[in-house]
Design a protein around this nucleic acid. Structure first.
Length: 570
RNA sequence: UGGGCUAUCGCCAAAUGGUAAGGCACUGGAUUCUGAUUCCAGCAGUUCAAGGUUCGAAUCCUUGUAGCCCAGCCA
């Protein structure tokens, strides 16, 4: 009794601790709420539509969305599309799809920074009138020279002291297209001697005649990120603008813009460390190279960690959310083991997916004392750990396929599977004892012969003797032929992702193994793209949407099952 | 060599001056019709280092060390 009470109070304590253990961003928000700086939390995910989202973006989406949910606030999806050179509508579509899939619920709040160009232009005018911005005629090269270096201060631009009137006139003419691309910029007038290079009169508007995916040819001047972003946040009433660590140095400029433009309830920028995964390629340039070289079959190749690739491989949004939850949020650069992600997907699929038998590398097994031509339908649980998933019937007959690995002529110690003279259980069926085997001229096993014991039928209550091994099988006559691909890391884990000498990638030449003779029990028939299963003893597999045809199912292995079996020397 | 940031187990990560949570990985062992799952046990004599303050330091101070980011009219 005392023990129980103790355990109970311990549980309560733990629950409390868990509730108290908040990440550093939640602690900041708590303080902002307690001190009255914030009424309702508003966050946003602000991608530039210039590529596909990957697992790192998933962290940001889930963090922002999760925070809004936790505090009863709002979460926006906003495209940060202020630089038309790199942006495409194609990407806005794929990003929306990925954000929704991963569970980033922005409801009806889909925004575009480009819709705020007018307000940004007005803001620039205000800055000019306040004497806080000026038009500069220096070339890009000259601006760089004037900027100074990390250790030396910069010099003032000769155009820095232009009058408000002249600046107003020039800026309007920039907008009207009177000056060629790159000939003039608008700069914030801050401090050319600042130790923070971002504060050395940063460029806030450039002239560029580009067709924008959203605004077309309406504008020929475009605002820069540092100027635009705080305005976007302020317009949307974002309270906590969460970004990655490399923007820490930009925060003073973010605050400067918000202050000079006199926004009430100014948004606050908070930086966190990116989510890295060990030995995984996330760089756009590198993925592009892999696609171009044909190493992978697209941005959604199952070995990649773009969101579309994870989806194709068979990861679920739940598993990715669990992974992010497990990783936590901090300001320390770190890199999570892929094993953690695998743990999450196994955990998620364990009780949710049917467990069926599939033989990846088949070898024939003949039951010599089983009548020829007889077919028996055996009952199996679809998921023994989740009875609600019901049962199915599996055909059993004289000729079966079993896994080549599950038979050895001359096995080492502690090999529990089939070998001459040994008896094992055929899962969901009978005990079977190896009596003989046939090999070809090269010595490869082509057929295994066994006898079965009808008394040992599964669920018959037989307890006469025990057997060490249980193996899976498929009736030869009824087998569905499919293709299964087994993946290893794309990267050679010994060497790490990048080759330091030439910047190339250290690829693992065996990152994919194709089993094209894979035999599965009839239950797979009719499986649709993205459907997934546990193939007993082999792992979780998902129907590939790209390569599956009406004639043939193609499966990708999502993750293997853990195994403590180590083949040992005799 | 200017500025900003970070450092707690193999990998993540808590701890907010009160005596190092948790998860992944790993290692035993039990149960098992999946060598899976589940269960149980183990896994930081000390928090980058060295000094100091304190009854008490991962937390405060001092001095170092290491790593990451910044010199786009990219985001």
């Amino acid at each position: 009794m005392d023990e129980k009470l103790e355990a109970l109070s311990e549980n309560v304590e733990n629950a409390e601790k868990e509730a108290v253990s908040k990440n550093f961003i939640e602690q900041i928000i708590d303080r902002d709420i307690a001190e009255g700086r914030c009424r309702q939390v508003v966050t946003r995910f602000p991608p530039e539509p210039n590529g596909y989202l990957h697992i790192g973006h998933a962290k940001s989406i889930l963090l922002n969305c999760g925070l809004a949910k936790k505090y009863g606030g709002k979460f926006n999806l906003r495209f940060d599309d202020t630089n038309p050179t790199k942006e495409k509508t194609e990407f806005v579509e794929s990003i929306i799809e990925d954000v929704k899939w991963i569970g980033g619920d922005f409801e009806d709040r889909l925004f575009f920074a480009s819709n705020y160009f007018g307000e940004m232009y007005e803001g620039a005018l205000r800055l000019i009138r306040k004497g806080k911005a000026y038009v500069c005629d220096l070339s890009a090269d000259e601006i760089r020279e004037y900027r100074g270096t990390l250790t030396e201060p910069g010099k003032n631009s000769p155009y820095r002291e232009r009058s408000v009137e002249e600046n107003l006139d020039l800026f309007e003419r920039m907008k009207n297209g009177e000056f060629p691309d790159g000939s003039k910029v608008l700069r914030a007038k801050i401090d050319m001697a600042s130790p923070n290079i971002n504060m050395r009169d940063p460029v806030i508007y450039r002239v560029a005649r580009l067709t924008h995916h959203n605004t077309g040819d309406q504008w020929c001047i475009y605002p820069m990120y540092d100027y635009a972003h705080p305005i976007e946040d302020a317009i949307e009433g974002v309270t906590h603008s969460i970004c990655t660590l490399e923007f820490e140095d930009h925060r003073p400029l973010y605050d400067w813009v918000v202050r000079e433009l006199e926004y009430e309830n100014p948004p606050k920028q908070i930086e966190f460390a990116k989510q890295y995964l060990t030995n995984v390629v996330t760089g756009k340039r590198y993925i592009k190279k892999l696609v171009e070289q044909g190493v992978v079959d697209g941005w959604d190749d199952p070995r990649l960690v773009t969101i579309s690739a994870l989806r194709r491989r068979g990861f679920t949004p739940e598993s990715i959310r669990m992974f992010m939850e497990l990783c936590g949020v901090s300001k320390a650069n770190s890199s999570a083991d892929y094993a953690m992600l695998e743990y999450c997907i196994r955990e998620d699929l364990k009780l949710k997916r049917p467990r069926i038998m599939a033989v990846l590398d088949p070898v024939k097994l003949v039951i010599t004392n089983y009548p020829e031509g007889k077919v028996e339908y055996l009952t199996a649980q679809n998921n023994p750990e989740n009875k609600e998933m019901g049962t199915r019937l599996i055909p059993f007959s004289r000729e079966l396929y079993i896994e080549r690995e599950d038979f050895m002529i001359d096995p080492p110690k502690k090999y529990f599977r089939l070998y001459p003279g040994n008896e094992v259980r055929l899962m969901n069926a009978y005990f079977v004892k190896c009596t003989d085997y046939v090999t070809d001229e090269q010595g490869n096993v082509t057929e295994i012969r066994c006898t079965y014991d009808p008394e040992t039928k599964s669920d018959s209550g037989f307890s006469g003797r025990k057997v060490k091994g249980t193996i899976h099988w498929v009736s030869a006559l009824h087998a569905v032929q499919v293709t299964a691909r087994l993946y290893e890391n794309l990267i050679d884990e010994e060497k790490g992702v990048y080759n330091e000498e030439d910047g190339s990638m250290n690829l693992n030449p065996n990152s994919v193994t194709v089993c094209d003779r894979c035999c599965v029990e009839p239950a797979v028939q009719g499986a649709k793209p993205y459907a997934s299963f546990q193939f007993l003893r082999n792992g979780f597999f998902c129907v590939d949407y790209k390569d599956t045809t009406d004639e043939r199912l193609v499966f990708n292995r999502i993750a293997s099952l853990k195994s403590s079996y180590k083949p040992e020397a005799k």
